[in-house]
Each structure stands twice: as structure tokens, then as C-alpha cells.
Write a protein that binds this DNA or RNA. Sequence first.
DNA 1: CGTAGCGATGTCATCAAGTGACATCACCCT
DNA 2: AGGGTGATGTCACTTGATGACATCGCTACG
Lengths: 160, 160
Amino acid sequence: MVADIAERAGVTARTFFRYFTDKREVLFDASAELEKKSLAALEAAPATASTLDLVATALDATVDIIGHDHELARKRHVVIMANSDLRERELIKLAHMSAALADGLRRRGIGDAEASLAAEAGSAVYRVAFQRWADADDDLDLRDVIRRSFAQLRALTAPN
Amino acid sequence: MVADIAERAGVTARTFFRYFTDKREVLFDASAELEKKSLAALEAAPATASTLDLVATALDATVDIIGHDHELARKRHVVIMANSDLRERELIKLAHMSAALADGLRRRGIGDAEASLAAEAGSAVYRVAFQRWADADDDLDLRDVIRRSFAQLRALTAPN
DNA sequence: CGTAGCGATGTCATCAAGTGACATCACCCT
DNA sequence: AGGGTGATGTCACTTGATGACATCGCTACG
């Protein structure tokens, strides 16, 4: 219950709802910062970068925030995956991020359709990479996993 | 309110909740059928198909269900996009579909990582394609839009 | 024919999640 | 000292959702 959560934090339920719009939102507090960082990285990228490179750069930037605490990330992931309402929330955060990313790409002059698609594709890569990383027993580097997932996407879509 | 919705259907709110787990679920009634159809298409695909071809085939199959009523699709899409909780639900349905697709790919002997990634990438393509189609003023063919989006993904990820 | 049983629905009570309106309290500023 | 301001608490209320139990209609079976 929200009342319990709030009590643990030493406040009333009403106060809780002043800080978080939602019960679930507690778990996704960092998402705004994540988005900000990755957008900043996008802006800072060199003009020569390809669309997909830009996306990769933006995703890479999130690693600084969440890539260090593997154990925490794993636990958090387990909790989220176990509750469909938390999964919903996570997905919409990702979708929001993807939309912001697409906007960022458009601001760099990339065509509308291409921007959306690149952002969504990047989001897809991120999803599987993060999942892979969080599930891994050994201590992988999230950045590496993302890179390898991008490479795998390239391989997958390459004409044969 | 649920009470109103139920009343329109000539039942009580309690009965409503016996048919739908959720208020939102009404709008996503067809998703199970969608998944079934696309999995069936996946099973029926020739053994020679590439992973991405398989995904494309599976997505194509959904067009038979939702691709005909452009006007309905548009209206539904508008409603969903306007409500973040409906968007959440839609996203998790898509995620569910993607997971099922990945499973289907694995059952065809495709490697675990590749299956997940291909399914997620397909899901990304589908998202943008559907969005594009729903937003379009003129009467596009959803199947075409999906195909073109796939092509665009290939172009995007092609080495340059 | 009558009734036992079953499935679908209704009724009622109850809980959890939010939300608006208003009260308090602490603190700062002049 | 007193007035304003921001953060928190209190209270009442709405809506979504769920469990327990009652009811009703139909069907099978003696």
C-alpha cells in the first residue's frame, strides 16, 4: 500500500502523492535524468556521425547513470519484470525516451520517418542489451553489451 | 466510469470485471487473436526464410485483422495516444507480442540473442509503420507501409 | 413432472489509489 | 512582532477493482 511506503519515508500518503504522481513512479525517478543526459550526448555528437551512430551515442550516455551498480540494476529489473503494471510503466518511459530521441534527431536535420525509426530501433537494441546485461551472472560492461547488440542488429538486417 | 461502460453494455460493473480484467482491456480485446495469427504465419513460413523475413511475415499477418478499417484504426489510435494509461497498455501488448515472436523464432532454431533482437526490431518497425499508417490522410496499404519501414531499417543499418 | 445442479449475473461490502479543499506549522524577511 | 510562503497533515470523496454470497434460468436426469 502507498500508506506503508509513505510511512517508511516518514510522511503521509498525501505527501507521497505530492512527490510522486503515482505509486509506481518511485521506481522510475531517474528516468528524467537519463533522458536529459542522453539528449545532451546527442547534441554534443560530431556532425559527421551517421544517424545510427547518433542513437548509439545517446544510449551510451545512459550507462554512466545505471551501468555501475549491476546488483541494484538486477534487483530492480527483477521487481519490474515480476509486475505487469511496473512493466507498463517502464515501457512508457522507454517510449518517451525514444520519442525524445527522435525529436533530437529531427533537430539535427534528420528526416521525420528516419528519425522515428532510428530512435525506435535504438530503443529495441537498448531493451535487449539491458535485459542481457541484467540477466548476466558475470560482470559484463553494459556499454559493451549495447555495442554488441548494435552490431548484431546490423548483421541481422544486412542483405545476404 | 466503468459503471457507465457496463451499463451501456447492459450489465453491472461487477459483470464487466468478469469479462475484462481491467477497464482498459476493452480496447485490446483483439490482441490475443493478433498474436495467434502472427504466430501461425510464423510457423507456416518456409524453412529458407531469413530471421528478418520471418519477423516480417509474422507482422504481415496482423494486417488481415487490423489493416482494413483505416478509419477505425485511426480513431482508436487517437484515443490511445491521448491517454497515457492506454498507451502503457498498448505498449505492454506489443511487448508481449514481441516476446511471443521471439519464442516462435527460437522454436525454429534461431539463437536466443538473435531471436530477441529480431523480435524487438520487428516490433520497432511495426510501431513506426502503424503510426505512419494511422496518421496518414490518404488511404495507404498498411502492408506496404510495413514493408517500406523494413526497407528503411535495412538502409539505416547498412554500412556506409 | 419436479428438482438438483450449474453457469451467468446481480448485490453488497470493502479495499486501495488518487485527488481537491482546507488547516497547520515552521521559517524567513523586513 | 507579524505577514507571507512553502511544505506537510487532515479529511472527505471518487473511482477501480475484488471477494463473498444470493439469485435466476436452464438443462439433465430420476
